[in-house]
Design a protein around this nucleic acid. Structure first.
Lengths: 109, 109
DNA sequence: TTATATTATCGTAATATTGCGATACGACAA
DNA sequence: TTGTCGTATCGCAATATTACGATAATATAA
């Protein structure tokens, strides 16, 4: 098969998994960190920054855009990327909520 | 290719990506939620709970064990699983730290 | 010992991801 | 218009993931 059976799980479970998948590659983590360290729009210098081919970098950017984590605005000939604050906050809260549900006090094994 | 070029990125970036990958499937989210909702060791009933085949469930459990998130202790004929508190806390802090680094005040696009 | 119950592993098929070269597309400059 | 620069998309190859049936491994029950 290969396709995950998303209909077996709740929307929340699928949402968390989808968000985690967007973060499940070091190149995408690097892109996000670069964007928020610069704290500004970044135009063009991501390819040199990452060390991956231009096509590969563009593909990772597309996935981050699909996940809603970043947005790109056309600035003349190039495109400027920055974080999407609302979605970022949403991710932050979803993960924080997921981790906080646990009561780790009781150990049983 | 298909293999990600982990040598291009920092250890922290690879760590976050690896942890995210462990959470990047709804079945694994469901397992973790079931474990912490029960707040106890769970022996055996995970297969009925998930609706996936026994082999598939076992495979997801193995990945969570490899990620360190859960631990299993042999209890007679069956195996009891529960969360690994220390690693869970580590995940929580790594993600929280990753999300907190950002300054979302300045929007530029 | 033999049977049964529970979990792990093997082998295989279907699909997804990662990466890159080649190429197309869009905006601007000459 | 023609050329150039920056980005996106296409097509392909290599590898990874997901899923399951079959089978092995282990512990207990009969």
């Amino acid at each position: 098969m290969g396709a995950s059976k998303s209909d077996l799980f709740t929307k929340q479970q699928n949402d968390i998994a989808t968000m985690a998948k967007a973060l499940a590659h070091p190149a995408r983590i690097a892109i996000l960190q670069y964007l928020y360290k610069k704290n500004a729009c970044v135009c063009g210098d991501l390819v040199e920054e990452l060390g991956l081919a231009q096509a590969t970098t563009s593909q990772h950017l597309k996935e981050l855009k699909n996940a809603g984590l970043i947005q790109g605005t056309i600035e003349g000939a190039s495109v400027c990327y920055c974080l999407h604050p609302a979605v970022w906050k949403q991710y932050q809260e979803l993960f924080a909520g997921f981790f906080k549900e646990v009561k780790l006090s009781k150990t049983c094994c």
